[in-house]
Design a protein around this nucleic acid. Structure first.
Length: 903
RNA sequence: GCCGCGGUGGUGGAAUGGUAGACACGAGGGCCUUAAGAGCCCUUGUCCGCAAGGGCGUGGGAGUUCGACUCUCCCCCGCGGCACCA
């Protein structure tokens, strides 16, 4: 190429971004694609001033993978959207004093502008926003399915309350006793809330981990969070109790120490604790309740109070005191435990309150056993039982089994499995979220009272107590979805324990879908993690962006599903197109941050499993009251509604985080770096390369803008190389170098080792920019194609230039890669292949060592690699002064690498 | 306390058990230029030495090996997750 054009990234980047979008370069045909490859990056929440370089880092890394796979011949689907519903966006709206809906529009525009400027290969015909009624309609639909399956229920619970965000939080959103979002100390409140029964899927979530290719770190975090622990349930009779409850059940993993149980401990919230009519006991409980989790964590000094009651140990009939102490927590096991001398917490507590302790385990080490007997040492390991009746002499492991069997035989307990995982608290007393699609009907309660025995109805699932009176719980019928979030002026949270929507009768006053009398809507909205728990399915089902744009302004009630499922003459609306879902899911690779280990990444698996388990009965219940159809007929015609997979993301890659000034980028720290100024100054290609060059993609790095100039120099040099260096013939060196580069870059990209891939590209540049080196047009093209994932605009522009060059020079040459003639984009061009024959070096350097120390080197012909004797005699000459006169004990030759004389 | 990850030049970081520090940034020197900028070239782990060359070097200590940043064990430090979970 002879013409020297100046590199103007600002011009070429916008030009190509427009070209890609207009030509739908990155919008695959979802129905007919032959090699579907769905690559997904966790979508952003547009909460702050805009996309920051941390986001751009993650998105670029994901995009490089997508662009690479496309060049490998896959039909890549790489969508983007905004997780704009929820507390984070509402908090930002609060901070800037704008209505969330208004702010969402501003953020949306800004984010999409920035995302376009990064040059990522997104399918711009299929974007989604979680606050779009057409989206949250289906979020609500999922809530309804959960309710119908009995997986959504109401419960009065002691919940995490953030005084600053003025809402409840899920356990997963409380970090070190503080709010995940605003770091306020989380308080406890007793509120009636909606929960999702994720605990019903604890085992499935645990077992599924064995089948997915995720970083071990995240699998471990999830296992730990689910916290399965197998042990025993043991019933202690309560003696002389005037209470209704005659038994206390405890959970233990150490049934082997049961004979040493000298006291029982109840959590303050335990039903027995709360029912004891004693001033001191109730005072203690009140005090314990007020303690926040943070206080509990920071002050581990044990406190408790004697309940006045005694329990009977089922194995030895010993009468032991029952204490109430807040080191027992209600949420785990049964909220009750037995205390013994082989647990540090129990021992600490017993010593403080002068409770008797009785060791029952020995180690066999006499000195140690003496210390155990005298309570000088609290032994918590496995040992051999003594003073334990018929179980004395058994090892801990044997005793655990046998005692559990004994308990079962005498109906005093048995094996039991507990989980750390708690049910997912889904309701939020905020404005900016999908209203929970539930209606409470007083009339239906009255009707049901007449018809059935109310004792069969379960509180929280069938009925709820609203304003002190029972109401039946009714799901909003699916054809009435969405329950639209009204535009209200008083959207700010007040901290009253109810959502701002509770001040709006025009919202909550409604008709019961069952009996048509006046009823009341739920006014809470759902957790933002529900929005993001199924979005990957929706991308596949957005068929017609133009239609979506047109329909704006019409009421969303008029919107019909894009993909009605037809069953006989009945049209059933579901949120995803199953034909397309089957073709594209599960997702080839999911990329995102590891910080969502026990949040999004757990919820998204849970919801997929529930949707996977939708069975025929569920399907019938969905279409229930809508049409009188012959069910037998239907069974044969019905299409699968259930997702065809339980694990949506068989492969997950966790990218690293970009930090700035030593801390994770966040608005509150004020260390946000926005990519805009860099893109404006150097272009997106330079910034992409720079970010990817910082370090391994899995590791992240510290953003400093000092190195970006250097990267810009490199990009310019590459541009100049392509626009000025003449094409000629490849010589052997060049062929070896380009093949080596192709091989290494390919491997590096596949391992997400983008930083080393870029280093290879630089190495090749350093090699070829030498005036003495010559390259052919074909080699130049191969090299250029390696750039395409990293610097897509530059690659496109140069590709175009080279096409013209070829055309003017020699018409025939164009056809050597006919694809770009059809579609004018490098991204339809094949990824270059390397030829192993050029990777074999003619000359090989063998390092010569004497006793492992490097003493020289010899160069041999590659055909002589296997000839040890020849290499040895050459090597001997090289190190004559070291081996002369000494007896060589051994010669170790690693072919082509090292020859070592042991003397 | 438990679990996981990491520790390599001034900096970011490279190294299927085989010449440690690729590739960059920064720094120093030079060329070009009226100047600035851009570009190009050289040097750059450290110590001794004019040089040739040599010694020492991947948090510390041991071990396996002809050979260890890499594998094993112990210790120190940093980061992340979980945590009165019975």
């Amino acid at each position: 190429m002879n013409r020297k054009a100046q590199y103007k990234p600002q011009e070429i980047e916008v030009k190509w971004q427009k070209y890609w979008e207009e030509n739908k370069t990155f919008s695959p045909d979802l129905k007919n694609a032959k090699n579907p490859y769905y690559t997904l990056m966790m979508f952003p929440y547009p909460s702050a001033e805009g996309l920051h370089v941390g986001n751009m880092y993650a998105f670029t890394g994901a995009d490089i993978h997508g662009r690479y796979m496309r060049m490998k011949g896959k039909d890549v689907f790489e969508p983007i959207g905004l997780d704009g519903f929820g507390i984070h966006s509402e908090n930002y709206a609060l901070a800037v004093g704008r209505h969330p809906r208004e702010q969402a529009k501003i953020s949306e525009k800004n984010f999409y502008r920035q995302l376009r400027a990064t040059g990522n290969a997104y399918d711009w015909t299929r974007t989604l926003e979680t606050y779009d009624p057409d989206y949250y309609r289906w979020t609500q639909w999922i809530f309804v399915q959960m309710f119908k399956k009995g997986l959504a229920y109401r419960k009065k619970a002691r919940v995490n309350w953030c005084p600053s965000d003025k809402t409840v939080l899920a356990d997963e959103q409380v970090i070190d006793g503080r709010c995940e979002r605003c770091s306020s100390v989380v308080e406890k409140r007793d509120l009636e809330q909606w929960f999702f029964k994720i605990t019903a899927y604890a085992d499935a979530l645990l077992n599924g981990l064995n089948q997915i290719d995720w970083p071990e770190k995240i699998k471990i975090a999830q296992r730990q969070w689910i916290g399965k622990s197998e042990g025993s349930r043991i019933k202690f009779k309560v003696q002389n109790s005037k209470l209704k409850i005659k038994e206390i059940e405890v959970f233990t993993t150490r049934a082997d120490t049961l004979f040493g149980a000298t006291f029982l401990v109840l959590a303050p919230e335990h039903p027995i604790s709360t029912s004891i009519r004693d001033k001191f006991v109730q005072q203690y409980i009140e005090k314990a309740k007020k303690k926040s989790d943070k206080e509990r964590i920071e002050n581990k000094e044990k406190t408790g109070v004697f309940s006045g009651l005694y329990g009977i140990n089922p194995v030895n009939k010993e009468k032991i005191p029952i204490w109430i102490a807040d080191y027992a927590v209600m949420g785990y096991g049964t909220g009750a435990l037995f205390g013994d001398a082989h647990d540090e917490r129990d021992t600490e507590f017993a010593k403080k309150y002068g409770i008797r302790l009785k060791p029952t385990l020995h180690t066999g080490d006499k000195k140690k056993d003496k210390r155990i007997d005298s309570l000088e040492e609290c032994f918590t390991g496995d040992g051999v039982l003594f003073d334990s009746g018929e179980f004395s002499g058994l090892s801990s492991a044997e005793a655990k089994k046998k005692i559990a069997q004994w308990l079962e035989r005498y109906r005093a307990g048995g094996p039991e499995t507990t989980y750390h995982l708690r049910d997912w608290l889904i309701s939020r007393q905020r404005y900016w979220g999908p209203p929970i699609p539930i209606i409470y009907c007083r009339k239906c309660w009255g009707n049901s009272k007449l018809k059935t025995q109310n004792s069969k109805l379960i509180e929280g699932r069938d009925y709820a107590i609203i304003d002190g009176r029972e109401h039946m719980i009714r799901a909003v019928p699916e054809e009435q979805l969405p329950v639209e979030l009204p535009d209200v002026k008083d959207w700010r949270p007040e901290g009253t324990g109810t959502s701002p929507l509770a001040n709006h009768p025009e919202f909550y006053q409604t008709k019961c879908p069952s009996c048509n009398s006046s009823a009341k809507r739920e006014t809470d909205v759902s957790d933002t993690f529900l929005d993001s728990s199924w979005y990957y399915l929706r991308y596949l089902s957005i068929q017609n962006q133009e239609a979506r744009i047109k329909k704006q302004g019409t009421s969303s009630k008029d919107i019909k599903s894009d993909q009605p499922l037809e069953i006989g003459n009945l049209k059933l609306d579901i949120p995803y197109d199953l034909k397309i879902v089957r073709r594209w899911c599960p997702i080839a690779i999911y990329i995102g941050g590891a910080e969502h280990s026990v949040l999004h990444l757990l919820y998204v698996r849970f919801i997929a499993m529930v949707l996977h388990d939708l069975n025929l009965d569920d399907r019938l219940s969905i279409i229930d009251n809508r049409s009188k159809i012959n069910i037998q007929n239907l069974r044969s015609k019905i299409h699968d509604l259930a997702l065809p997979f339980a694990e949506p993301f068989p492969r997950f890659f966790a990218h690293g985080l970009i930090i700035s000034e030593g801390a994770k980028m966040s608005k509150s720290r004020g260390n946000i770096v926005v990519p805009d100024i860099y893109i404006e100054k150097f272009g997106a290609d330079t910034l992409r390369l720079y970010l990817m060059f910082l370090g391994p993609f899995s590791q992240g790095g510290d953003f400093r803008d000092t190195g970006i100039e250097g990267m810009h120099r490199f990009v310019r040099r590459v541009w100049n190389l392509f626009t000025t260096k003449e094409f000629g013939e490849d010589n052997q060196d060049t062929l070896q170098m380009i093949n080596k580069t192709i091989k290494k870059v390919t491997l590096d990209i596949e391992e997400f080792s983008y930083n080393t891939a870029i280093a290879r590209l630089m190495e090749f540049y350093n090699f070829i920019s030498d005036n003495n080196k010559s390259w052919s047009q074909q080699t130049a093209r191969s090299y250029l194609r390696l750039f395409a994932p990293f610097a897509p605009h530059l690659a496109e522009e140069v590709w175009q230039e080279m096409k013209h060059e070829a055309r003017s020079k020699n018409q025939g040459e164009i056809n050597h890669d006919s694809k770009f003639m059809i579609r004018d984009s490098i991204h339809f061009s094949e990824w270059p292949k390397y030829d192993e024959k050029y990777l074999v070096q003619e000359k090989v350097t063998v390092v010569v060592q004497v006793n492992g120390k490097r003493r020289g080197e010899v160069t041999i012909d590659s055909s002589n690699i296997g000839k040890k004797n020849e290499v040895e005699s050459l090597a001997r000459k090289e190190v004559e002064k070291y081996v002369a006169g000494k007896s060589v004990k051994n010669v170790i030759y690693i072919p082509g690498r090292i020859i070592n004389f042991v003397i």
